[in-house]
Amino acid sequence: MQPTKTLVLAAAFAGLAISGAAAEWPEKPVTIIVPWSAGGSTDQVTRVIAGELSDALGQEFVVVNQPGASGSIGTKGALDADKDGYTWTAGAAQDLGSYGVLGMLETRIEDWNLFLDVANVSVVGVNADAPYEDFGQLIEAMKASPGQIAVATAGISSAGHNAIEKIKNAAGIDYKHVTYDGGNPAVISTVSGETEVTTQLAAEQAEMIRGGRIRPLAVLSESALELDGYGSIPPVTNWLADFKAVPNYFGIWTPKGVPDEVVAKMSEAWSTRIANSDKLKSYAANRGAQFAPFSGDDAQARVMPAIQAFSWLMFDAGKAQNSPEELGIPRP
């Protein structure tokens, strides 16, 4: 009797396995690999997206965190997975496009189907007790004592580091770079006074700005940032007229080579569901991000400026292993 039972169960399982081949995508849960730890800015927005997609496509979208090596380990997982549309990954397009240049992963931005959700901007914020009332005063102070003012970022090649490096080039200043494990710890260090300045994303500073713990001096963009519950943060171009700011797009993506049907269905979900998602819109407004539901060629064109700027910044600083030129990234 017992062996029969086992056989029946075995047959049932075999059936389960075979039925996985055909049918319409998605007919089993879809995995989105977040290559950063749970709770970070990529994780948060991706969980909003996963919830909306689960609803729209009638299958669970499961978020799996695989942090490590600036997101390249999790991204590699998605790159190496079966091209069946059941494995996606998420993050900032600027990172995805520059892994090749930095020698972390052999991939180019054109190898991916991009589905963008929000664009984040960096904000220069200082401790509420710091003496700098506007961005001009901060630049003066940095010029007066080069390399003495501590700037907190989420680490080398993070959005915050990228921002302060651009300011350094544009204003001719020098600073003391202090790195933290992520955007939030960097912001906290400025709140507690361990560092004086942070240049992390608006999303990561939003609560502290609203709470009066951080004074925002400028946003790295060409127009002012309106933050719910605070007001307007002036653009950096008020002080550095020829500063070129490019938005940093976030989204989910899967490698090219997945069935056309997957891309078509996702594009449809993107233009009907995500583009009208109140949850994503209010999330973005809350966190000081721009709502950016783009996909396809439009998305490819939008992410390129940030990849160009960052890749060449790294290459010119001698921190890149491969020339952006050879990887099809023209100098901006």
Binding site: Q2, P3, K5, T6, L9, F13
Partner: peptide, 10 residues
């Protein structure tokens, strides 16, 4: 052993 194996696996 057989029963346990089947139950645990399933």
């Amino acid at each position: 052993a057989l029963v346990l194996a089947a139950v645990v696996a399933v």
